[in-house]
Structures are given as C-alpha cells and as structure tokens.
C-alpha cells in the first residue's frame, strides 16, 4: 500500500516534470545555479544546498541536546520525575510549524541579528561560515528553528531506545564498581548507538521536508554562499512559494522536478543512514 502510494506520487510528479526536463535537460537542471522564471532558466542546486545545510545544521545542534536530555531522563533522575521533563518535550512536538515560524521571526531572528551573529563574527569570524553582515534571517535561522523542531523526535526516540538497555547490564556494570557516568559511557551508549543514530535519522527526515517555518526564516533567496549568515532557499520552501502562481508548463515542471529532487535527497540520506546503522550494529536496534 505504502509502495503504491509512493509510486503514484513519483509517477505524477514525473509526469508534471516532463516539459521542464525536455526543455532544460535533467543534468543541467540538477546542477544549475540559476532560478529565473521569466527567462525560464531553472536550476535546483541552490535549493538542494539550502535544504542540506539547514537540515544538517539542525541535526548537529539537536543531536547532542536530544541525546543528553534522554540520558538525563532515563539515567539520572528518579523515575517519578521523568514525566516532568518528557511531557514538555513531547508538547514541543505538537506545536504547529507556522507558530515556530512566527516565533522565529519575532524572537529568534532579532536575537541572532543583535547578539549571536555579531558574537560569532567577532570570535570565529576567520571561518567563512561566520562572515558577512548579520541579517538574522538566513541559513542559520532556518537551521536553529529546525533544531528546535526536531529535538522532541530525537529526544523521545532516544529515550525509548535507552529503555531497551537491559537492567542486568546496568546492574552488572554497577556491581563491577563503575560510576554512573561510566555506566552511561561504557554500557548504555555502546548498546544503543544504532538506535540513537536511527533517532537522529528520523529527526533529519523531518528537517528535510519541513516547509513553513523554514520559508519564514531562511530568507528565500536562491544563492549558494558559504556563510551561515547569508540567506538561502530550501526545496520545500520554493515549491510552497511558487506553485500557486506558477504559469507555464516549464515553471510548473521545474517545481515538480524539485519535488522529485527532494524525494531523491530524502531517499539517498535514508539509505546512507541505514547502511551506517547496519555497519555500526548493536543490539538495541529500532525500526525506522
């Protein structure tokens, strides 16, 4: 059933994309850097770049925090206080993304513009990542909001994974004289590393497809720049922005093509992560 629906989606997108593929050429579309609906020149690269950069940034920021939160809940506090931490995290997951976007626009962006980005430019400004004028809006804002949005996914899945670590293993380690930190480092984490990776993957998957919050914060400018301060554009954002008023088969086709590229990117990252997971192994594997 899932395969059939997936197949139908791909097929109808491909059907829409045919006129664009004919006029632009598949490869040129994929690596093209220009997006000019008037001249009907379309390239997907700036959008792929924006999507990957914001999603990876989100995962890099959210993984340590999410895993730390899960460890804190499962291994450090008494069981009866667990819901005090896990309930707010799960509530975070139920906030609509447009609300995240609004909050980002009115709270996060001014903070980034006024404090975080000037600080980064002053201390780490020698890196190309932190150069250019601090606008607030841009790849960094998109990445940070995505990190907050995928945090509940990562934390709650990791928590489930940690719960599968057999009590006998923990008790054994404690009996051998391990400290609490040593139990975490030598027993809990190695046992559940594949599952934690899976949690990160689920988070990454959510980040790749997130549309609304990102389009409100990323700056919506199809550029490829090294700096995280610079505005960018993501695949879902441009589709949402331009689809309603796209006139002409080629513009429409190019947007459908971006949909296929997004599908492909997700598929590719998923497969890579699965490979990684089976390479890492471990008994606490979870279904992803």
């Amino acid at each position: 059933m899932v395969l059939v629906v997936g197949g139908l989606i791909v097929w109808s997108l491909a059907d829409l994309a045919v006129p664009a593929a004919r006029s632009l050429g598949f490869f040129r579309f994929l690596v093209g850097r220009e997006w000019d609906p008037i001249a009907e020149r379309f390239g997907a690269l700036p959008f792929i770049y924006g999507t990957v950069v914001t999603s990876v940034l989100a995962s890099v920021l959210a993984m340590p925090v999410g895993v730390a939160l899960a460890l804190f809940v499962s291994d450090m506090i008494p069981a009866r206080f667990r819901s005090w931490i896990s309930f707010p995290i799960e509530t975070l997951a139920s906030i609509p993304s447009v609300v995240f976007g609004l909050w980002g626009l009115f709270v996060l962006v001014p903070v980034l513009r006024g404090h975080v980005q000037p600080f980064l430019a002053k201390t780490l400004g020698f890196l190309p990542l932190f150069q250019g004028p601090p606008i607030g809006l841009g790849l960094m804002a998109g990445g940070v909001i995505l990190a907050i949005m995928i945090l509940p996914t990562i934390a709650s899945v990791t928590l489930e994974v940690l719960k599968t670590v057999p009590l006998t293993l923990r008790e054994g380690a404690l009996a051998l004289g391990a400290t609490r930190w040593e139990v975490i480092r030598m027993v809990v984490l190695p046992y559940s590393r594949a599952g934690i990776l899976g949690a990160g993957l689920l988070g990454l998957g959510r980040a790749l497809g997130e549309t609304m919050a990102v389009t409100m914060l990323i700056g919506n400018s199809p550029e490829i720049r090294a700096s995280l301060f610079a505005p960018g554009y993501s695949l879902p954002a441009v589709i949402a922005n331009e689809f309603a008023e796209a006139t002409g088969a080629i513009h429409m086709g190019a947007l459908a093509g971006l949909g296929l590229v997004l599908f492909g990117t997700t598929l590719l990252l998923n497969s890579l992560a699965r490979l990684l997971m089976s390479a890492v192994g471990g008994a606490g594997r979870v279904a992803v």
Partner: peptide, 14 residues
C-alpha cells in the same frame, strides 16, 4: 516582469 522573478538582491518573505 512577472509574478516570480530572479531578484538581484534582497530577502524574500511570504
């Protein structure tokens, strides 16, 4: 001129 154009500069908002 058009409904979506390739802007030389600026930030896009919805």
């Amino acid at each position: 001129a058009g409904k979506s154009v390739s802007w030389p500069v600026g930030l896009g908002a919805k």
